[in-house]
Amino acid sequence: MATGITHEESIKRVYRVCGILAIVTAVEIIAALSHYSWLGLSEEAKVAAKLPLNVLFIVLSAAKAYYIMSEFMHLRYELKPLTISVMAPFLFLIWAIIAFSYEGVSWLQLRTWFG
């Protein structure tokens, strides 16, 4: 499938990505559990940690998506135009996520201020 690499090398790459995904997932779970009360964090600490934790989750999930698409779905071995045609539509989602989230915040504010 991939130019120039052996069958054995292909298999190794798959297991390597499997390991990466497993580790990333484990990190995510541990980070999520840190928010749990057994760690004994104070309420203020939990609230303060929420935003950086969420950013971490989003970044790590994007990393997992990258590995799944590039190795499992073979995108890094495909010709460039195919890869671009698959990835480019995701750009449209960026503005959609921003606009919809902004709207959601706006609704909360309106409800809080106007009951």
């Binding site: 449209f92 959609a96 606009a99 902004y102 709207e103 706006s106």
Partner: peptide
């Protein structure tokens, strides 16, 4: 065409800055 959809919603109570 994917960036303009809310121009159908200007008077809905849409956030004005948006």
């Amino acid at each position: 065409s994917f960036l303009v959809w809310a121009h159908h919603m200007f008077v809905t109570g849409l956030n004005p800055f948006l």
